[in-house]
Design a binder for these strands. Structure first.
Lengths: 347, 347
DNA sequence: CTGTTAGCGCCTTCAA
DNA sequence: TTGAAGGCGCTAACAG
């Protein structure tokens, strides 16, 4: 049925061992022999049996990329960049880098890690904020440790560092700094009644951005905890939360959203309420997705270099690039001031 | 080092075969024995060796999902839906469904198919438009045929049917119908000078949408081939193409874009030119991505049920759902008339 | 219901 | 530079 290595060997009149050697390339083989083998491979349409190969060699060429929500370009961009970087590796056996979408579910996150462990994955890249539930965090930590024990390289991208030394490298986004930056920007414009639409309560990303925001408020002597609403990372959540904020504080002059998508929802809600952005209310996002610059008005946000970070994570996963000192690199955001923020009416 | 099935067997004082049976579940095992085995598994932190298992069983639990550009929510939504559907399968051994991002490169498409063939993938879902280059199309067809021969189920989602019987099921988007619909809508509003921003020239999706558009024009006795500009599926392309269209036809009253992202770019260009949407120029997109309803003005577009299609593709790939008659189902779009289109000034 | 017995297809010493 | 041989960890008959 399907050709095996032995078939190729027979056709090329060499031993299976020789075929294996030319296929893996890391062993001297006479040019003529190699030629013959390659021809036989071609004629037989031979394709290596991955499972058999992995079993015998006790290694695999699978690289897993875990994302929380692949429909969100935040993850799509990072994952795509990582895959592109991995696909560009030259020299080694071609890696099969694959994206695994947990949908934000802790169970599926663990399931995927187990599945990758089953496959003896060469590397695993985990992207995006982590769930803060201690039990789940411990489970993930343990899983990653086991993976690392088995030789799998672990890279965190856009996720805070983990204790222990099982992680090969961590690229952490400076979510606190970004949140702070945005708060400072708005306060500098003269805003005092600033609403905050946070992401899901139990995620590190959410907490860090919010902490940064609060530190900015605190520095200005403000305390606006009653103007913080939690939601998910989608447009709908931004819409609903904005209405809620308006209910709590009709004199609201600014809204900071957990990310750009949420910010767009916020803009929609304000518009539906007859309020103008930024004349009546300023709005800011986070991440700077491609559409944010095209929004009307263009969105003020904190730009995260998603593509660069994803690509670097891919290279780190394959060891194509040395790990940063201490294994941890902080990736900073950049404030992009655009049309959606302005001084409040009174100022 | 890592525990093996034999270790578990020894600890539970049963034979390896028994352990295998409780793990795979599809075989009667005494409750007490199963209990003992499960405990041993737990105590040893045993994780099945995927490659070994796949080799012995001559099957694998890998399902590959090929996408052209995972950073584009068009693919993210479909792929995420497929993965969710596959993750929900109950009964069988858990599948590892993974997304492979070709980045639109024909070579990488083939590479991924080969890699999946290596892994003896249980199923492959190929999403999005195909390249029309005959040589590449033939290569992909041959690859898919070989995969099918080896027992891999093949599902096409958002891609036109392929000749031959290697494909298990095809979900084809009615891109022609959608293009026609949009053209009819604009013509009905009174537009006569309609520009069209097409996607990359060599993709089926591009061609079909354009054909639909042209058929609409033809039905109204219009022929506007000079108002067709090709570009990629991104925002930038929409921006540039719109400027070009304006150059070719300053009296332009409407622009139809290859997709929503391109349409947003078109809106940005018009705005920068001081033209109002839809008062001066109407704009329409295709697909209806989540942000399209929130654009200002909200985008008129043809809604493609991406999530539903992706989920169905996932189920078809696992045989959880019978293939449609003839193996082919056409997925129709729905015209969403929103604020970005209106009658032209003169009308 | 459970154990025994052969491989699955490949890689990797070890010899030649 | 090449061949021979054993085994990677698991599953699948076949007995019992």
């Amino acid at each position: 049925m399907t050709a095996t290595l032995a078939d190729v060997a027979a056709r090329a009149r060499v031993s299976p061992a020789t075929v294996s050697r030319v296929l893996n390339g890391n062993y001297p083989v006479a040019a003529a022999t190699r030629e013959r083998v390659l021809r036989a491979v071609d004629e037989l349409d031979y394709v290596l049996n991955g499972p058999a190969s992995s079993l015998a060699a006790a290694t695999s060429d699978l690289v897993g990329i875990l994302v929380n929500d692949i429909a969100d370009p935040f993850f799509g961009i990072m994952a795509g960049a990582a895959q592109a970087a991995i696909g560009e590796e030259r020299g080694a056996r071609e890696k099969l880098s694959v994206i695994c979408n947990t949908g934000g579910s802790p169970e599926r996150e663990l399931t995927y890690l187990t599945l990758l462990q089953r496959q003896r994955a060469a590397a695993v890249i985990v992207t995006g904020g982590a769930l803060e539930d201690p039990k789940h965090a411990a489970a993930v930590g343990a899983k990653l440790a086991r993976l690392a024990d088995a030789g799998t390289r672990i890279v965190l991208c856009g996720r805070p560092p983990l204790p222990g030394d099982s992680v090969t490298a961590t690229l952490a986004f400076d979510n606190r700094g970004g949140g702070r930056c945005l708060a400072d920007h708005l306060i500098g414009l003269g805003h005092r009644r600033i609403g905050y639409i946070a992401g899901p309560a139990e995620r590190t990303t959410t907490r860090h951005r919010l902490e940064g925001h609060r530190s900015g408020l605190a520095a200005a002597g403000l305390r606006l905890d009653h103007l913080v609403v939690h939601g998910s990372y989608d447009r709908r959540s931004g819409y609903d939360a904005t209405l809620e904020l308006l209910r709590r504080e009709p004199e609201l002059t600014a809204v900071v959203a957990a990310n750009d998508t949420v910010a767009l929802g916020a803009c929609a809600a304000l518009r539906d309420r007859g309020l103008s952005v930024p004349d009546d209310v300023s709005v800011a996002g986070f991440v700077d997705l491609p559409f944010s610059a095209d929004a009307v008005p263009a969105l003020t946000t904190v730009r995260l270099p998603l593509y660069e970070a994803g690509a670097r994570a891919g290279r780190l996963a394959l060891g194509m690039e040395p790990a940063p000192p201490g294994g941890i690199a902080t990736v900073h955001g950049e404030l992009m001031v655009r049309g959606s923020t302005a001084a409040p009416r009174g100022a």
